[in-house]
């Protein structure tokens, strides 16, 4: 068994397609988040965020993450734009590992400038991005892979067995991270009377912080079976998520349900950023075979409908 585990770790890189999808979505999230916050950048993280100093300094973040705290005015804007550029480079997979590392470094430097506006999504993002620095996320669906196809592979910097080990262990850590969030969340839920009573989902939807639709959807929120269904589904899917991952048919069900849950949270509670981060990480759990099949299906559809392909080009 130990020999099999060692072979699994050292003889090849796993989940390379899923990691490519995760890389693309995470790069998009970083770039789009910064674009969304562009107009308020100084107030949120720049000169206007100095009032948070008392509390932000209580955390012992390493000094090398102090970039955004030390620059202001045009220099801050340049650093902000460079972060967006690296997010895009990560998304398209150009110099993938370096751009992932730089995106992480710059994103974290920005986060440290005002942790007060951070969210649960940031915690997951920073951990997954750290692990992403050790994986080969640019092996597929990236500019790097296209360049490799044209000019051929470059001699690797480190032995293949070591590179594969780092890749696979980091992949395990990413999967562990996402599974842990679900299971820990479920453990907290089952200790709470409102979750056990099947009404928990109702409460945040009533608060102004989590109701971007205000009273528009109140008739839906006030419907007992809908609230109970959403509450119990959340508990069951999260609690049994690791078990459901073991068997392929149940894994498909689990991924569809958890993605639906995140989309529901994002759309109805107005926290799409957090939801997208979780969906991005969940994509690693889709097997490479499934990604290849999906890719081939899309390709075959495009070939079968040349007119559609033409219209897409236009």
């Amino acid at each position: 068994m130990i020999a099999r585990a060692l072979d699994w770790l050292t003889l090849g890189k796993h989940s390379t397609y899923g990691l490519a999808v995760t890389r693309m979505i995470l790069g998009f999230i970083v770039a789009s988040q910064l674009a969304v916050n562009w107009s308020d950048r100084s107030y949120t993280w720049g000169d206007g965020a100095g009032w948070t100093e008392t509390v932000r300094n209580s955390k012992s973040w390493p000094a090398f993450l102090g970039l955004f705290k030390q620059v202001s005015g045009p220099a801050f804007d340049v650093a902000y734009l460079v972060t967006i550029v690296f997010g895009i480079l990560m998304m398209i997979g150009l110099y993938t590992r370096a751009s992932t590392f730089m995106t992480l470094f710059l994103w974290m430097s920005l986060y440290v400038a005002n942790p007060f506006v951070g969210s649960g999504g940031d915690a997951v993002l920073r951990m997954v991005m750290l692990y992403m620095c050790f994986v080969d996320a640019g092996q597929h669906w990236s500019v790097d892979s296209r360049l490799r196809g044209r000019r051929g592979a470059i001699k690797p910097l480190m032995p293949v067995w070591f590179s594969a080990t780092l890749h696979n262990l980091a992949t395990i850590l990413i999967i562990h991270q996402v599974v842990m969030v679900y299971v820990a969340s479920a453990f907290w839920k089952v200790q709470s009377p409102v979750w056990k009573g099947g009404t928990a989902v109702y409460y945040p939807l009533q608060t102004l912080a989590y109701s971007p639709w205000h009273d528009w959807l109140h008739p839906v929120y006030a419907t007992g079976p809908i609230i109970a269904g959403a509450t119990y589904t959340a508990i069951v899917v999260q609690l049994f998520f690791p078990v459901l991952l073991i068997y392929r048919p149940t894994r498909v069900v689990a991924l569809i349900m958890i993605t639906g849950m995140h989309l529901g949270i994002g759309i109805f509670m107005g926290i799409l950023y957090f939801s997208l981060v979780m969906i991005a990480v969940d994509m690693i759990l889709v097997s490479d075979k499934s990604w290849i099949r999906a890719f081939e299906w899309v390709n075959s559809r495009r070939k079968a409908n040349p007119v559609d392909e033409e219209s897409l080009r236009i």
């Binding site: 060692l6 770790l9 003889l11 090849g12 890189k13 067995w161 594969a164 780092l166 262990l169 395990i172």
Partner: peptide, 25 residues
């Protein structure tokens, strides 16, 4: 492996490194 690598199985000292890394994880 999903993405096979043309490489011989690791030697004993390499296995130890993998084992230590695995333990840290």
């Amino acid at each position: 492996p999903d993405s096979p690598v043309d490489e011989a199985p690791p030697r004993p000292w390499q296995k130890w490194i993998v084992a230590v890394l695995g333990l840290l994880v």
